[in-house]
Write a protein that binds this DNA or RNA. Sequence first.
DNA 1: CGACAAATGTAGAACGTTCTCCATATAACG
DNA 2: CGTTATATGGAGAACGTTCTACATTTGTCG
Lengths: 352, 352
Amino acid sequence: MSIEDKQKLQRNDRVTIRTVATHAGVSVAAVSKVMRNAYGVSEGLRAKVTDAIEALGYRPSRAARGLRGRSFTIGVLLIDIRNPFLPEVIAGVNAVLAPSHYQAMIGVSDARVQLETSLIESMIDYKMDGLILVAPRLPSEIIAKFAVQIPIVAVGYHDAAATAFDTVNADDQRGAEIAVEALLTQGYRDIEMLSLGEREGHAVSVVRQREIGFRRAMQRGGLGSSAPIGKIPIASPKREEAMRKFLSRKDRPRAVFCWSDLDAITLLSLAMEMGVRVPDDLAVIGYDNSSTAALGLVNLASIDQSGRELGQVATRTLISRIEGRAGAEHIFQIPSLVSRNSLSRSAGASGA
Amino acid sequence: MSIEDKQKLQRNDRVTIRTVATHAGVSVAAVSKVMRNAYGVSEGLRAKVTDAIEALGYRPSRAARGLRGRSFTIGVLLIDIRNPFLPEVIAGVNAVLAPSHYQAMIGVSDARVQLETSLIESMIDYKMDGLILVAPRLPSEIIAKFAVQIPIVAVGYHDAAATAFDTVNADDQRGAEIAVEALLTQGYRDIEMLSLGEREGHAVSVVRQREIGFRRAMQRGGLGSSAPIGKIPIASPKREEAMRKFLSRKDRPRAVFCWSDLDAITLLSLAMEMGVRVPDDLAVIGYDNSSTAALGLVNLASIDQSGRELGQVATRTLISRIEGRAGAEHIFQIPSLVSRNSLSRSAGASGA
DNA sequence: CGACAAATGTAGAACGTTCTCCATATAACG
DNA sequence: CGTTATATGGAGAACGTTCTACATTTGTCG
């Protein structure tokens, strides 16, 4: 070590890998080896280095790491932070990551394709080790293009044909079927689905999948000819308006399946205001089994897809890919019905 | 440009600042100058460089940037992603950041001090340009220590004496006062607060502040001697249990102020189950004015503190500090009452 | 025309890691 | 003892930026 180096050490207070090396009386390369527990490190060396790290409170710079090797960070991209289902996914991700040396950084795209793209690029530019995209809006080819640069797992994105990236999904078709079957079992025949309007065209989207499942189950139940699907806009003023219109239709169905609890709960609320009794006049099933649905005040039957578990599985899948797995995996989880009063008075709060 | 450089360009496909420089026929330093729009760049040079960037689709590596200078990223630390108030703050942050060249990366600490610390350290190690901590659990001295290394703005953290970092808060004391005043105006005298139990001791926490405001307003109303504050645990089984116990007490108060909508809504729900009529038997005011509170089904009066605005203000404050402001700022916002049926039948859904 | 100032562009040293060789020490074997 | 394998540690070149110091050109003024 030269004299200039020593001087530098004095005035600059940041503890770097070099400080550790000096303190432990070993080379920089040795410290790096210990950090990454690479091959060729003796017990003695390891001990010396670990002690020095401890004593100095050394933390490797992620920026510098990213420049050369891995950054031990995985990026999570959320389409929207307001949908209460998504925080569940995050919780699952964090649960798996907590004991590891990885950390999650989250970006929120607010459903804007451009922001989504630029966030993904940023995460790549940070040299993150992998990405979990939750319900991305981007077309499959684009995601595949990014997947060349960084391991990617998409959650809530139905594209079992993708070869460049993995997908982890609840079986949304099956979920919708389960909802319809439950309504059929209760004796309902006059069933409609309320889906998400506007944009959101791709078949990859969970919403489309639920529509497909809805149609199939209706068909099986002998109601194929009339399986109407209404569209509810996302934006707030129009949204309530569309629901009010639905509720006041005189050919209003006897039962409705909503693509998300978000809509189902608002629908329940408006129904109460307008004097439509649930489930007597109208049975309602939602999707996601959000915590609000479980409230006694709301008591909404819903399809449970455990976002938490989805997050956990996605994280494990991503890590396995980071650590070398080739070949895409496409994982499905089977959702289940949580029966509550909005489906049938007798149902109570018992699970399915 | 040497021959080796040319060869490297061929096999390595990453577009770096060097690629751009070669393509534009200028130096690397020149490109960097244009990127940072630094002093000493002619129109001609700027044009050449911008064209090259455009043509090559160049994106600067954040990792490399972080190593030397700024990374144009700001970190946001959330204590919890499930409280629906927090996404609002994020929305505010993103709104301010969107038109700028900054981006937000979010970390979730799940209220665990250790995870919180390590996330802050990570963000520093990433050379992020600044941090927004939302309702951090860390003591002020620790935050101050971090603030030496990176500009910090704390949101929902009451420490107007802090000199090392800025704070942005809703005036939680005032919010609680407003709630009590509203109850007093409705003629209630028998008022209790339901606060957050367990941990969360510091006076910096919003919860403590609301307790202080509650006590003061009760005192002013001549009810100083009896301003009882109950504690509700966070964890789920005990939480409902405590609320049930509260609701079935025979000396149950006529009105209650809950520290958060989260609790108020569950309370409303249990009240319905147990046959306690709201507001006739029990008036309820919550805090945060979450979207669930606004549902007709719930109809919970609440104190609105606009998380969105808090996020916007915090972001602007942080940026001004990043760009050189010294001296701490401590900003307050005044919350307002949103009156709804849980306070008084006549209230309807009209604002305050 | 000479002297000085201002404007513009460049070279090259950081920044803090990782990781590929390479050097040395030790062990194993005939 | 010489040879070869193996285990251990180190030197030093990347990685892609930023930014200071300097060189060059152009402009201005007496």
